[in-house]
Structure formats: structure tokens, C-alpha cells
Amino acid sequence: MTKTSTASTTTSTAAWAGMLPVEDTRLAVTDTGGPGIPVVYLNGQFANQGYWRRILADLGPDFRHITFDERARGKSGRSADYSFEAAVRDVDAVLAARGVEKAVVVGWSYGAVVAAHWTARNPERALGTVLVDGAFPYDWLDDAMEARIRKLFKRLNLVMPLLRPTGLAPRMSAAEQAESNIELGKLSRQSELGPVLDGITVQTRYVVASGTSFGSKGDEQEQIRTGLDAVTERNPNIKVSAKVDSNHGALLKKDFGAISAAIREVAHAGE
């Protein structure tokens, strides 16, 4: 698909930022507008849309950038539903509200799993997908890990009230955050995520970090990343664009250029 035909999937529109009513909540959405290729960015599990700013600046006006805060993250409102399926529905809600039929989908961490599911379910609407250090099929959740997750978030609950006014922590209880993380572990199992990735039919690129992530120990995160090897062997549409030196939490800041390059690659893959 050419750049011209890709951009024509949406009309040029003015920049917009505001609160979008979705189900029982309101999502903080930012749309840079313009005639560029639409790209929707899906955040890390408890992150906000500000994490993408370096990538947006690097890509510039050739793209129409759509970012939003997930439920109870950033400036978005609370909800009774913080499930993974709600996160997938919110992608549709944001794109529909902004009049975007087709887009490049970019997800980091938790957002990468959301992006993979959305892409597999909407092959005619995904112009390409970039998965940033997430969506690795690997059986990392067991009873001991589940207990560790609950203990971690219970301990973090002591400092969450101090961080929430700054926007650096979600407006979710410790139990809600733990359940979200446990659900992610179940969805990341090889038997669950593997078939989703196998079903992707559009050009998809991974940008893979190195070292640890929040809550991981030793080489746990590197072991989880090995789950990608079988995926790229089975599906020729999926490739690793870059393996960077930054760890999971720092790559959007330190290696934004590698992510930008992957976005350009999938956006122009059909030219």
C-alpha cells in the first residue's frame, strides 16, 4: 500500500485534545490531526500518553499521532471495568471517535499485547503494527508469581496516594492493579498469545529491550523475550526490527529512534 492510499483512509482534520466519553468513563485523548498516516499508540500497563512524546517529535507531521490514557491512568477517569477486553474496546472507541478507519498500531509492554490482539482481530484496519518490548508468548505466571505480584502491589499501595496527584500512578487500587497484571500473565501464556500472533497477517515489527523490567529479577525478562523466537519462525509477517541496549522502562526515552524506524518501516511496507 502506498503512502498516498494509506493516508487517504482518513480525511485531514484539525488537531484535537479532550475527554472522550466511553462506556462508564472518559478517556483523555490527543490527536495531532493533519493528513499524515494515522498511528495510534497504546501505553504500558500503568503509563500515560506522555511517554510517547520523543517518538512523536521524531516522526513529525508525516504521521497523524493519536494517543490516549487508559482507564484510570493519566488524566482518564475511573471505571468499573479494567479488563483487557475493555482496553481492546477502547482502541475501537478512540479510532471511531476520531474518524479513523485504518491506522498503524503501536503498543509498548501491556499495550503491545493489546495491539497484537487488535491487529489479529482487525486485519483490514491495521496498516502495520509495532510491538515494543511486549507480547512475548511465555508461561511466566505460576502460583508463586501470582503471590509475588499481589505482595508487590500491596506494598506499593503505601506510596500510590502520594504519586497519583502527579499523574505518575494510576487511580486504581492495589488489588485492581494486581488483578490486571495477573490477567496479563494468563494472556501471555504460549497457548493463549501464540495463536494470536500466528494469526497476524499485516507487517509487524518488534523492538526488543534488554535486561530487566519493573518487578522482574535476574534474567527473568530476558527469558520471557525468548518466547519471540518461535513466533518469527512461524509467521513471516513478524520480524524483529531492533534489539536495543535500554531496559524495558527506558527504551521509549533512550531508544526512541529505533521505534520510529520500525513505525516508518511498517507504514511504508507496501510502497
Results as ranks from 00 to 15, higher is better:
F136V: 00
P137G: 03
P137Y: 07
Y138K: 06
Y138D: 11
D139C: 12
L141G: 06
D143V: 07
A144F: 07
E146W: 13
A147Y: 03
R148M: 09
R150H: 06
K151W: 10
K151A: 14
F153W: 15
K154V: 01
L158Y: 04
V159P: 09
M160S: 15
L163N: 02
P165N: 08
P165R: 04
T166I: 01
T166N: 00
T166P: 00
L168V: 08
R171V: 01
R171Y: 08
M172S: 10
M172G: 05
M172R: 15
A174P: 13
A175W: 06
A175E: 15
E176Y: 06
E176F: 08
Q177Y: 00
Q177S: 04
A178Q: 06
E179L: 13
S180L: 04
S180E: 02
I182M: 11
I182S: 08
E183G: 00
E183I: 00
E183L: 07
L184S: 03
L184D: 01
L184R: 06
L187N: 02
S188P: 00
S188E: 11
R189K: 07
R189A: 08
Q190M: 11
G194T: 05
G194V: 07
P195L: 14
V196A: 04
V196H: 01
V196T: 03
L197Y: 00
D198I: 07
V202M: 07
V202P: 02
V202Q: 12
Q203K: 12
Q203F: 01
Q203D: 06
Q203E: 09
T204A: 05
T204L: 05
T204M: 08
V207C: 08
A209M: 13
G211K: 01
T212A: 13
S213E: 11
S213Q: 07
F214V: 15
G215F: 01
S216N: 03
K217M: 05
D219W: 04
E220L: 05
E220N: 08
E222S: 01
Q223E: 14
I224Q: 12
T226C: 01
T226Q: 03
G227E: 01
L228A: 07
L228G: 05
L228S: 06
L228H: 10
A230N: 01
V231E: 11
V231N: 10
E233T: 15
E233H: 10
E233V: 12
E233I: 12
E233P: 10
R234S: 00
R234T: 05
R234E: 05
N235S: 06
P236Y: 09
N237W: 04
K239S: 12
V240A: 13
A242C: 03
A242S: 14
V244K: 12
V244P: 15
D245C: 00
D245Q: 06
S246A: 15
H248I: 09
